[in-house]
Design a protein around this nucleic acid. Structure first.
Lengths: 262, 262
DNA sequence: AAGTGGTCTAGACCACTAT
DNA sequence: TAGTGGTCTAGACCACTTT
C-alpha cells in the first residue's frame, strides 16, 4: 500500500513536485497526466501494474476527484492505460495493433498550394460500366462524369487521380468542378461542404506502363493505391475513384508504445 | 439566437427526446453526444455552423455543466467538432488528413494462433554492417543476431520477417527468443514486456525473386514493407527489421467524416 | 458588458471487484 | 465489507471573443 507512495518519494527528478503547481499555466489534470506518463515511460510503473487509485492520487496531488479523473481520461485516450471498474487503473503493454498511420503524410503532398499544382487530364461523361454503376448505386449504362487529374509537386507528377462522379444534368456542378485545381477542396464542392463521409482503402500496387508514363517513372515501380467512395448527406454515393501515388514519394510513419513528446 | 432552439423543436425524429432518459443505462453525456452527432450527420447542424452553447444544452437537456462538457469532449475526441474559447463549438468539415489506417488489419493476420504459424528460417549472429550498426547505435563490426521468420496463414506464407537484434552474450535471451513462434509476443520477450516503444514506417514495394520465392508468389508482385525499430526502457535500440507482407493479403480500410455507427 | 468555452471544487450516489 | 472506478450535481472562477 505504501509502495506507490515510496515510489513517489524516491523519484529521482526533484524538479517535478507531486503536488501540482498552481502557478503554472499548465492545467492540474495535465500536470498529473504527464507525471504519471513520465513514471510509466521510466519504467517506475511497469506494464500490467496498477496505478495509484484515484483517491490516492487525489490525496497525493491535493486535487478534487474530477481533476484526477480527467488526468486518467487523458491516459486512456492516449492508449497508455486501461481501467477496470472496481479494480483499478493498469498500465497497458504496447502492442502493434494499436499503431495507426495518418493520411496526413499523403494529404500534405497537395496541401501547400504553392508547390503543388493539379493538371486536369480529362473530363467527359460516359456510360457507367458494371463496376462503376454498382459502386455509385446506378443502373448500368447511366451516364457518369469521369475526371482524370495529375498532381504535380514542384513540377514532378506524384499522384494520379481517377474519379467517377454522379452526373446530374440538372445540377451543373461540372463547370465549377473542373475548376478544382488543388484537390484541397475535395470536400468543398461549390464553396460549401456537401460530402458527409467516405470509405477509403489503402493497397500496395505496381505501376503499369500507362500509369508509369503519367507519373514520369518506370513501369513495375511500387505505388500506393487509395480507393475512395464518398457519400453526401443523403447517404447517396457521389464519387468513386482512386489515387495512385508513387511509392518513392510517400512513406507513412508512426509510433507504438509510450511517447513522452506527445 | 432562437434558431438552434427551433431546430430542436422541428426535429423530425419524435422518438428521441431532448431531455435525457434517466432510466436508460446509457449515460447522459453519451446520450447528448449521440443526439448531437445524429443531428450533425443528418445535416441539421452543417459543417462550419455553431452548436448550441453549453449553457443552452444544459437547459435543454436539464443536466449539470460537467455532463454537457463530457458530451462535447466526446465529439472533440471523435474529431467531429472544434471548440473556440469565448466563441463556441463548431462542426468540423471532414477532411482526408484526419483519416487514419490502423495496423490492426496487419496484426490480425498473426493474432489468431490457430490458423497462423511462424516458421523460423534462420537464426545466427553476424557482424553488423554500416546500416544495421547505425540503426542499433553500435559500431560497425559488432555482432548482432539475425532472425528470419516466415508467417504462414492457413499454411500459406503471407509475411516475411527479417530482424536484427542486439546480441548480448551475457544475456542469453537467444534460446527463448527462438521459441517465439507466434510473433504475438513481440513485446513480451522472456515472459514480460521489455520493449518500451517503436518507430514504424510503411512503404509500398515490389517483390524480388528471393522474397517472392519465400512468399510463394511471383516476382514483381506488390507488397507492403513495414520497417520497425524498437527501443527498451533505457531508450536503447533493441531490434531493427522489417515485415514484408504480400499485397494481395493485406488491405487497410478506414472512414473519413461522420460515422454514426461508432 | 454579455456570452462563450476551460478549469476546478467538494461532495453525492452507483456499479463493480476483491476479500 | 471495503475499496475501486463511473456518473453526476450545482455551483465557482477564469480566459477569451463578440458586440
Amino acid at each position: 500500500m505504501t509502495t506507490h507512495a515510496s515510489h513517489l518519494r524516491t523519484d529521482i527528478s526533484g524538479n517535478t513536485e507531486d503536488v501540482v503547481n498552481r502557478r503554472s499555466h499548465e492545467p492540474a489534470y495535465e500536470q498529473i497526466c504527464n507525471l504519471l506518463r513520465e513514471k510509466i515511460s521510466k519504467g517506475i510503473y511497469l506494464p500490467g501494474s496498477r496505478l495509484p487509485s484515484e483517491s490516492e492520487l487525489r490525496r497525493i496531488h491535493k486535487v478534487s476527484p474530477m481533476t484526477v479523473r480527467r488526468a486518467i481520461q487523458l491516459l486512456l485516450d492516449q492508449g497508455i492505460v486501461t481501467t477496470v471498474q472496481g479494480s483499478g487503473t493498469f498500465v497497458k503493454a504496447p502492442d502493434l495493433g494499436g499503431a495507426t498511420f495518418s493520411l496526413n503524410e499523403f494529404y500534405d503532398i497537395f496541401k501547400d498550394q504553392d508547390r503543388a499544382k493539379v493538371k486536369l487530364l480529362e473530363a467527359r461523361t460516359l456510360k457507367a460500366d458494371a463496376d462503376t454503376a454498382a459502386r455509385l448505386q446506378l443502373s448500368e449504362g447511366q451516364r457518369v462524369l469521369l475526371l482524370r487529374r495529375l498532381l504535380l509537386k514542384d513540377g514532378d507528377p506524384v499522384i494520379f487521380h481517377k474519379e467517377y462522379l454522379i452526373y446530374d444534368p440538372f445540377r451543373p456542378v461540372i463547370e465549377t468542378e473542373l475548376e478544382v485545381t488543388t484537390l484541397y477542396g475535395l470536400f468543398e464542392r461549390n464553396g460549401q461542404t456537401c460530402l458527409k463521409r467516405g470509405n477509403l482503402t489503402l493497397e500496395a500496387m505496381v505501376l503499369n506502363p500507362e500509369e508509369a508514363g503519367l507519373l514520369n517513372t518506370m513501369p513495375l515501380q511500387p505505388a500506393f493505391r487509395i480507393e475512395h467512395l464518398f457519400y453526401d448527406f443523403d447517404e447517396t454515393p457521389i464519387s468513386w475513384g482512386q489515387f495512385i501515388c508513387r511509392g518513392d514519394k510517400l512513406r507513412f510513419k508512426t509510433m507504438v508504445g509510450f511517447d513522452l513528446s506527445r
